[in-house]
Amino acid sequence: MKRSGPLLTLLAGLLVGLVMLSLNATTGEETTASTVQPSPSAASPGTKASPPAATPTATTQPPSPSPSGTAVPEGVYTGRTDDDSSAVAITVRDDKAIAYVCDGHNVEAWLQGDVRADGSMKLTGKGGTSLTGTLKGTKQISGKATVSSGSYPFTIAKAKKPSGLYRANSQVAGARIEGGWIVLPDGLQVGVLKRNGKPSPAPEINPETGALTVDGHHLTARPVTP
Rank of each mutant, 00 (worst) to 15 (best):
K161T: 14
K161M: 10
E108A: 14
S34N: 08
A97L: 08
Q171Y: 08
G113Y: 02
W181M: 09
A58H: 07
V101Q: 04
Y152V: 10
K194E: 12
A175K: 14
V224M: 01
N24H: 10
G191H: 03
H105G: 05
Q171W: 08
F154M: 04
V88S: 02
V214R: 05
G127P: 00
A87K: 04
L188E: 15
V147T: 06
R195V: 02
A33E: 04
R222D: 08
I98C: 00
R176Q: 14
S64T: 15
Y77W: 06
S66R: 10
P62L: 11
P153V: 08
A43H: 06
A87S: 12
S66F: 09
L18Y: 06
N106G: 11
W110F: 09
S68Q: 13
Q37R: 10
P56A: 10
L14E: 01
S44Y: 13
T78Y: 05
G46I: 07
S39H: 03
S142I: 01
T129N: 14
S4I: 08
T26F: 15
L123Y: 02
I177C: 04
G128K: 10
L219E: 06
L18A: 13
P199C: 04
G143P: 05
T31W: 03
K136M: 06
G75V: 04
R195P: 00
S4P: 01
P62F: 08
A211P: 00
V107A: 13
A89I: 07
D82T: 11
T146Q: 12
V192F: 07
N196M: 01
G75K: 06
T91F: 10
A87D: 02
L165P: 07
P52V: 12
I177W: 01
I205Q: 03
L10R: 13
